[in-house]
Design a protein around this nucleic acid. Structure first.
Lengths: 393, 393
DNA sequence: GGTGGTCTTG
DNA sequence: CAAGACCACC
């Protein structure tokens, strides 16, 4: 039998809000380590994987592995009946055809019980490849959501390009094209570094069958190669072109209107692009210094605010050690090799609903391989996989 | 003529928001005691009764009783033109076919005048049974709304069971069943006790001074037997039993099924209807005069007096008069006998819109008898009646 | 919680 | 065809 208690219904509610439009039926695979859900989306294009660690529950007991076939629409309805801060207990007998949900109000004079029918669902437990991705990007989840939403207004798909400087999201539509560039800065690096490390460790821990705590706890070490470089840049004098300049830089362009060669979209050769970028950045620097003098740091000017990066004082530095409570702008990138892939925005927008679950998101990519979009909340994670578009589809 | 001024348009706005979906046309029956509205809902299943006490108005004058036939959709539109804190004055001449509304801004630099067409509406002043219910439940109005909304996601109807421990709301649906239990606690009891007491007293006061019962149609027989018993439990010595009794009629669930001539809806002959109305009015006057004679005060004051009369203890007194500002969880129950009834959730959800008007709601039930859902705001009340479902319908 | 968009209904 | 009700986004 299963008995699992969450101290806050909000988590489950958010989870279901995240996936209910993508998947209508799925098995909750319960075992002693926790609850997992894995399903293709309704159109069999994307894959969703949810993981809830046993130790993320206030109480967890699952005597033996059991799949609970759940209609997510129904479950969503039932969860709507819980208040965010209700304590929720899930109960199912072995081989049960119902799932019982018990909601206890934070103040104890209200108890609600629900009983939801279960169903048999063909367990298409697709194995998910433990890929080593060429790039991993950590960034603000709301920023990612915003970008996807913005670009979805223009076109159907987005091209994601990752190189050492940052990540560029580009969409081309009939009436307009758009491109958003997120730059890796000392600030964003500091903020997100631990995230990728932790995530990596966690994954390792899991894949090796170990309990995840161990991996999760030692965040301090694991340094990928790229990481060290960046780290040095952090306070270096030698003015490394890239990471330093744009603290929280977010550049939007309309490539279509830009015929200059600094339009990276048009550039096929990565190296050239790199160089061009440098030039560009230098120029910006000068401009920015001027700007700083006159401009305050309002949101509308955020894009231009790069220059403030230079003044990145100790206060910003402090962010490094801090938990990611509010996710800073910018990105953190770990990469072996530059990557450029194109995805359907429709799905990404859908994935991005999970930003309610975490302040940051990680995008993992290798060329020709499905994108992994992953949100980690303390006690579990939700991952989405989406195959890239090939050619002009 | 009528001239009635409310210091806050918000009240009227909320009132109309509450009922406009249920009823599209209704008579505002104005007389010197205030304004009453009573109507079956559009599908003739539920009954709505609104009462605005004369002394709830900043200024109130109504020379003689007059019904104002109002299209609630129009009135809602007109009221949308008022700001919440505008002072609103309603004006109508005798036999007028328009209602004038004057909005004066809280700060005196804005005056708006509206004139709305009135219409003739067959006055189906159905008598409402002055039932003494087997149970009365007081609870947070938002909690009630929440429960109804929640359960409506699961099924069409809700079973309400009341016993001494608390109230249970249960709904069964195709994919899930749900049940919410609210417990009576010391806290909730303390908070709501005064509410029910006050309400009870108020109802008595009303029934002794109001009209609409004279037509007392042959439905007196529907008075529940339990009524008298209950009455005695009332600690009040001077309880005007005579007034209480026989005034009530029961709601006819489907007027179409009622062949009695008292159902004005069915009357085709306008003149006859007219005459009946007159007779009614006369009767009303007489009754009222009598009442006034014995209880030399305005009806609303009567109520207050009585309410205060009942409770000796000053501590109780304090509680009683205390407004319930934020309604605590839990319920307060007064009961003679356990009750279990089933209702259509659709209507309850609709009723629950009135939670904007009061922080608490009272549910009054007897087996086999229409539920009364009642919201009391300081200067009046809104009551809904809904017949229970019988059997498996 | 408010608003806009979509779908259903009269 | 229009209005209201419902659902998703902000």
């Amino acid at each position: 039998m299963l008995e699992a208690r969450l101290s806050q219904a909000a988590l489950l509610k958010k989870l279901l809000d995240s996936i209910k439009e993508l998947v209508t039926d799925a098995n909750f695979e319960c075992n002693e380590e926790g609850i997992n859900l894995q399903a293709m989306d309704n159109s069999h294009v994307a894959l969703v994987a949810v993981k809830l660690d046993a130790d993320g529950f206030a109480k967890y007991r699952c005597d033996r592995a059991m799949p609970l076939g759940v209609n997510l629409t129904s479950l969503t309805k039932v969860l709507k009946c819980a208040k965010d801060d209700d304590r929720v207990t899930l109960k199912a007998r072995d081989n049960a055809d119902v799932l019982n949900l018990l909601y206890e109000a934070f103040v104890g004079d209200r108890v609600a019980e629900y009983e939801m029918k279960l169903m048999d669902i063909d367990a298409d437990q697709l194995g998910i490849p433990e890929t080593d991705y060429d790039v991993q990007v950590a960034m603000s989840s709301t920023e990612f959501a915003r970008i996807c939403r913005d670009l979805t207004n223009l076109g159907e798909s987005v091209k994601i390009e990752v190189n050492k400087e940052g990540v560029r999201f580009t969409s081309e539509g009939d009436s307009a094209n758009g491109s958003v560039l997120l730059i890796q800065t000392a600030e964003s690096e500091a903020a997100y570094k631990g995230v990728l490390d932790k995530k990596k460790k966690k994954e390792e821990g899991e894949s090796s069958g170990v309990k995840k705590e161990e991996g999760a706890e030692d965040e301090d070490e694991t340094m990928a190669d790229g990481e060290k470089e960046v780290e040095e840049e952090d306070e270096d004098e030698d003015a490394p072109k890239s990471a330093k300049k744009g603290k929280g830089k977010r550049i939007s362009k309309k490539p279509a209107d830009d015929d200059d060669d600094d339009d990276v979209i048009e550039i096929k050769d990565e190296e050239d692009a790199e160089k061009e970028k440098e030039k560009e950045d230098d120029a910006e620097h000068q401009e920015e210094e001027e700007d700083d003098a006159e401009e305050e740091d309002t949101s509308s000017k955020k894009r231009k605010k790069k220059a403030t990066a230079k003044n990145g004082g100790p206060s910003k530095r402090a962010k490094k050690d801090k938990q990611i409570d509010e996710a800073p702008p910018g990105v953190y990138i770990e990469m072996q090799q530059a990557v450029q892939l194109t995805f359907s925005l429709k799905y990404l927008v859908n994935f991005a609903k999970s930003s309610a679950l975490s302040n940051y998101v990680t995008l993992s990519m290798s060329n020709e391989v499905p994108l992994l979009v992953s949100y980690n909340f303390g006690s579990g994670s939700i991952s989405y996989y989406l195959a890239p578009k090939i050619g002009d589809e």
